[in-house]
Structures are given as C-alpha cells and as structure tokens.
Design a protein around this nucleic acid. Structure first.
Lengths: 113, 113
DNA sequence: TGAATATATGAACACTAATTCATATAAACA
DNA sequence: TGTTTATATGAATTAGTGTTCATATATTCA
C-alpha cells in the first residue's frame, strides 16, 4: 500500500507525474459504470433513503419484477449494496457511504447547470 | 431554479421525500457514463495534469490515432473537455473542475480498498 | 503548389449490457 | 401438504458503446 500515494488529501493528491495505471483505470471505470444507468441510479436513490425490500424498490422506480434483482445483483457484487433476508423479503441497503458521496456529488453537478 | 433544492449542502441535501426523477436520473447516468471507460479515464488523467494536444494523449495512454479524437468528441459534447486549436495541433483541457472532483473522489474510493 | 503532418469523422464490426420471459427457489400461510 | 408470495436466475433479445479502417479536412513546410 505504499507503492502509490493516493491516500493524501484528494485535491492536492494528484501528482504532476501521475498517470493512471491500467488496473486502477479499470477499477475506477467499474465503479463509475455502476452509476452509469438511470434505473440503477433510481434504485440507489431509493436506498439512499434507507433500507428497503425488493418489491418496494420495483414499485418506486417502476421497474419489472426481474429487472430489479438483476441490477441489485451487480450492485451487490460491487459491494455497493448489501442484502438482508427476513422472511421471504430481502432488504437492501447501501453497503457504505462511498457511493453515496459520489452520487450526491454527481447530482450536485448535474443540478448546477 | 427553485423547483428543486439540490443546491444545499451535499450530504444534508438529500431529502427523505426525494426521489430521483427521470430526467435527472438520465443526466446523472450520462455524467457517470462519461467516466465509465478505462481509456477515457486515462485520457482524463492526462488532462488533469494540464492542457495537452491530441497526439501526446495518444502516446501517453497508448491508444490509436483515431480512437482518441472519437473519445474526445464525446467528452467535448458533455462539456467535460474543451478544445483549443493552435496551428495543426488541437490542445485539450478540462472544461471545469466538476469532473475532476468526481474523478478524484472515485479514485480515492478505489484506492482505499 | 504539392507533400507531409495533425486531427476528425463515417461506417463496419465486436463486445457489452439491460431488459424480458420463463422458470426456479424458498418462505409463509391455509 | 399444497398454494401463494417474494426473490433470484438463465437464456434470449435488443440496444448501446468502443475500436478499427479508410478517408476527409486543415495546416505547415519545402
């Protein structure tokens, strides 16, 4: 973890000599890809309000029964959301605040022009 | 500009009653889509260091002659980069700091796990 | 003016990704 | 136990995206 120095303050961290290596580029692209679909974003916007079960997500974002679990699967694999089963319902929530920050920063930008 | 209240402090702005409408969802998805490709991210990582001409981008990120302008076109249309022609070279730079912030926040997250 | 260089663009192709449809699993309830 | 409800999954379809190849435009230089 000392071969790079990404861990500095975000804005000042970017070294002039820095060039994004292939692996980091791919990871970063994967992260942003998770946020690159309107329906996925709407699912996340629901989860931003708190833990919710699948059916309720479907209704809120007006997606079909099977489309929602399909998307949730991807988000789960990216560790963006987390599932908790209770009875026959499965409750999803954001796995941490990382994506919430990105989401809100992005929304901020979109809404300012 | 007062039909929404997105302009509050980012973290507290997210109203419990808020649900991402279709248009905002699409705009946001478009924004994140701009960052959803490794090569595009590498191009941006070069531009983060400052204004650069196309050929130099090609060399730095090891992309073909035509692939780079193709990608730059998309970034230009999204107003993420800006072009300045000088002689037969075209110099590109980031159009503002919006995407830089997203890029660095994302990189931050990727590098912390 | 003609050749060389830098960038852009259109079409074709390959690849990815999102949705739907059908079906499977699994829990609750009668 | 059998039926209903909630979620998940696989396959197929469709739409979108990134690259390459060939070519166009535009600028410099001889």
């Amino acid at each position: 973890m000392n071969t790079n120095s990404y861990k500095q303050d975000r804005v000042t961290a970017y070294d002039e000599a820095f060039s994004l290596d292939d692996e980091k580029a791919s990871q970063l692209a994967e992260l942003f890809s998770s946020l690159s679909d309107p329906n996925r974003l709407r699912i996340l916007s629901v989860l931003l309000r708190g833990e919710t079960h699948v059916q309720q997500i479907s209704e809120t974002v007006a997606m079909s029964q099977s489309a929602v679990p399909h998307q949730l699967r991807g988000l789960r694999q990216m560790r963006i959301v987390r599932a908790r089963k209770q009875g026959r319902m499965v409750y999803y929530s954001l796995d941490d605040d990382h994506v919430k920050e990105l989401f809100l920063l992005g929304l901020d930008h979109v809404c300012h022009e």
